[in-house]
Computed example of a mutant assay.
Amino acid sequence: MRIGILGAARIAPTALIKPARAVDGVEVAAVAARDRGRAEAFAGKHGVPVVHGSYQELVDDPSLDAVYVPLPNALHAEWTLKAVEAGKHVLCEKPFTSNAVEAQAVADAAQAAGVVVMEAFHYRYHPLMERARKIVEGELGEIRRVTTSFCFPLPRFSDIRYSLPLAGGALMDAGCYAVHCLRTLGPGEPSVTSATALLRSPGVDRAMTAELAFPGGATGHVQTSMWSRRLMSVSARVEGERGSLRIINFVAPQFFHLLTVKTAAGRRRERVPGEPTYTGQLRAFLAAVQDGVPPLTPPADAIANMKVIDDIYRAARLPLRGSAG
């Protein structure tokens, strides 16, 4: 599978170039950037053989099977749709699109074209989360509350992640992970009951908290920030009638993580071995493209995640990102 990269993004070496060296059958074959000089420098540094003069030129390259989209959030839908129209499979960075309407449009286009489109929630491709789900379903009994957080400091306020036109905000960046993890561990799809934002600029959240409700009566809580009093937190907690589970660092468990379970049988800690999340993600993308193996983060899942994000923005009385705002 030959993949082209749209944009000389900082995340691309970690998310694609390094994993491609570990996954047989994958070649990073081309890159394009708005600045050709930047693309050439990126290609030279990372051994990418072809540089295209524009995003469209890369998308139209008949030698490529797939496209990786690590562009700013506001461009995800546009360039995923163009890649799909060109018959390419797409691995699109999170968040999938700017809003749920765009996510549905991408899902419809991918289905009509018969191509694989996958959202890059890489953490789902580490064995940690499947182990956590097994514990939740088998040991905790009826689930009562799920809480997730992803907070980190980003005081560089000129960063595009604070740009409303580029679909930025804490909820869109770190928060999309917290929402996704809550949905992954929770008992069904949640609805939003309330949300409160701290703003960096009009319409742009630097922090967000939200309360949610699951169909069976369980409640949920999401906390995320790029600049707030809570500087660093990447965790999840599930409370059930028979016990609780807590995960520290569900996003990048290959560096460090801790899973703690408390039940009537006592308290135990587990660590779940596995290859880097991005390597597992690339293996899953290849398996989906070549063998038709359904990925864990398909467009239908992305639509559901974007609906929750949209509803949190509505509850916080902030505009939706993108054209739906």
Rank of each mutant, 00 (worst) to 15 (best):
G4Y: 09
G4C: 07
G4L: 09
G4V: 13
G7C: 07
G7N: 05
A8G: 12
A8V: 04
A15R: 07
P19I: 02
R21W: 12
R21Q: 13
R21M: 01
D35H: 13
R36Q: 14
R38N: 12
F42I: 09
A43K: 11
G44E: 00
K45S: 07
G47A: 04
V51T: 00
Y55M: 06
E57M: 15
L64D: 00
D65T: 03
V67D: 11
P72S: 04
N73W: 06
A74V: 14
A83V: 09
E85I: 08
E85N: 12
A86K: 15
K88I: 06
K88D: 13
C92W: 10
C92Q: 14
K94H: 11
P95K: 11
P95R: 01
F96T: 14
T97F: 07
N99E: 12
A100S: 14
A100D: 14
A103T: 11
A105E: 05
A107M: 08
A110C: 13
Q111D: 03
A112N: 09
V115T: 04
V117I: 08
M118H: 11
M118S: 08
A120K: 03
Y123T: 00
H126S: 08
P127K: 01
P127T: 01
L128G: 01
R133N: 02
K134M: 02
I135S: 08
G138E: 15
E139I: 02
V146E: 11
S149A: 14
C151V: 00
C151E: 15
C151W: 01
L154Q: 10
S158Q: 12
R161D: 00
L164S: 01
C176L: 06
H180N: 01
L185Y: 05
G186F: 09
P187V: 05
G188C: 08
A197I: 14
L199T: 10
G203S: 02
D205I: 10
A207V: 10
A207D: 06
F214I: 03
P215F: 04
A218I: 15
H221T: 07
H221N: 09
V222C: 07
S225Y: 06
M226H: 00
W227P: 03
R229G: 08
S233E: 15
V238H: 06
E241N: 02
G243Q: 06
S244F: 07
L245R: 07
I248N: 10
N249P: 02
F256H: 15
F256M: 08
G266T: 07
R268D: 07
R271G: 11
E275S: 11
T277M: 12
Q281H: 04
L282C: 04
L282P: 02
L282F: 11
A284C: 03
L286S: 04
L286I: 05
A287I: 11
A288S: 05
D291W: 14
D291H: 15
P299E: 13
A302P: 08
M306H: 14
M306I: 15
M306Y: 06
I309C: 06
I309W: 07
D310V: 12
R317C: 11
L318E: 08
R321F: 09
A324L: 09
